[in-house]
Design a protein around this nucleic acid. Structure first.
Length: 348
DNA sequence: ACCTGTCAAGTCTGG
DNA sequence: CCAGACTTGACAGGT
């Protein structure tokens, strides 16, 4: 099984390279000349796209093939005060350039709209802003001319005291989305409300691919082990919607998220780095029958955590452990069945 | 150069 | 009904 690792949005290794520079509405509003203020927003966005490109070059140099772009590329893009503004028209060339680099280098790029995108909401105004946010993320992917294999990963949303009707509302609202938005959505289990079993159920209903977050699954589950769900989760990636635009000889691998708890007293927060043990235990469990999987690292240290993890894995490399490090940010894990005690302890 | 409070967003809880 | 917690990187204003 080939495993590729990626990280989220920013680098802790490359300095002064934020792709998320922004401007508050307060400072925007203080500017007298609104046209000039809008051009200022566009110039900030250009800087963010430029830094995104720098990060992509950094990724290429380190063989990192999986990357989540920041949702904050365009400051105030979906703010109600700026609905008359069409930033993507002004930034078309800049987005196209980033998209070209992603395609030329075979990078799996994605977005993760913030958790304010809640399609399960019963409130019309919240639904409207959620759709606006999803529209914006989809438009950015289109401006980069990325195929539908570049996804927007979201959560189901709130439960509002009745989870099954919230799930039903999510399904109805999803079905009302434009097709090009539907094509690009993945669903991730969250750490408080919709657990992996419930998220999987919605994915199966809608034919959507599911991103399994194994940290969220650890803190929000129904007593199941994460690998027990894997055959079904894996199958959500073998649908026409999940694989839209993917080459038949090169299917889009399932993706999982990994992070480690900050501390036993604060198990939900993300630690700086990633503990290899539980991750390897999971990967070794799913290796039989899974040709490839992509792992998004959600750690405070971002790419720094990725490099630390690769260093730790290199230390384990060898036939004994069943791991081979292929290049900078990919490993191969054999499909041998390991002893249960090794899997539980995370050794080998 | 550094520190502290604020910003964006929506849900959920406690009072 | 409303204030506060939750989350996150970065702004904004102060020292």
């Amino acid at each position: 099984m080939i495993v590729r690792f990626g990280y989220v949005a920013m680098s802790t290794v490359i300095k002064d390279c934020s792709p998320s520079k922004t401007m508050t509405l307060a400072s925007f509003s203080k500017l007298q000349d609104r046209e000039a203020a809008i051009r200022r927003l566009e110039s900030i966005a250009r800087g963010n796209l430029h830094n995104t490109l720098r990060l992509l070059r950094h990724n290429r140099a380190s063989d990192i093939k999986v990357y989540r772009m920041t949702s904050k590329l365009v400051p105030l893009a979906t703010h109600p005060e700026l609905q008359d503004w069409n930033p993507l028209a002004a930034l078309a060339d800049d987005f196209a350039k980033v998209g070209r680099y992603i395609k030329e280098n075979g990078i799996r790029a994605s977005f993760h709209p913030d958790h304010f995108t809640v399609l399960s909401t019963p409130r019309p105004e919240v639904l409207a802003s959620s759709i606006r946010d999803l529209r914006h993320h989809t438009d950015m992917l289109l401006a980069m001319d990325l195929p539908a294999t570049a996804k927007n990963n979201i959560h189901i949303g709130g439960a509002y005291g009745d989870k099954s009707s919230a799930a039903e509302r999510f399904i109805q609202h999803f079905r009302g989305l434009a097709p090009e938005m539907q094509d690009r959505i993945t669903l991730e289990n969250d750490d408080k409300t919709f657990n992996a079993v419930e998220t999987l159920q919605v994915c199966k209903t809608l034919g959507l691919p599911m991103v399994l977050d194994i940290h969220h699954q650890w803190v929000n589950n129904e007593g199941e082990a994460p690998w027990e769900l894997w055959p079904e989760i894996s199958r959500t990636w073998q649908t026409p919607l999940a694989q839209k635009d993917a080459a038949t000889d090169n299917p889009l691998p399932p993706k999982i998220h990994v992070s480690s708890p900050r501390s036993p007293s604060d198990p939900r927060s993300h630690a700086d780095g990633v503990e290899p043990g539980p991750l390897l235990a999971f990967l070794k469990r799913i290796a039989p029958g899974t040709p490839a999987v992509d792992v998004m690292i959600e750690a405070k240290a971002k790419d720094g955590a990725l490099f630390e993890l690769m260093k730790a894995l290199k230390g384990l490399e060898g036939t004994e452990s069943g791991i081979a490090v292929l290049d900078g940010a990919s490993i191969s894990i054999d499909a041998k069945i390991y002893s249960l005690s090794d899997l539980i302890s995370g050794r080998k």
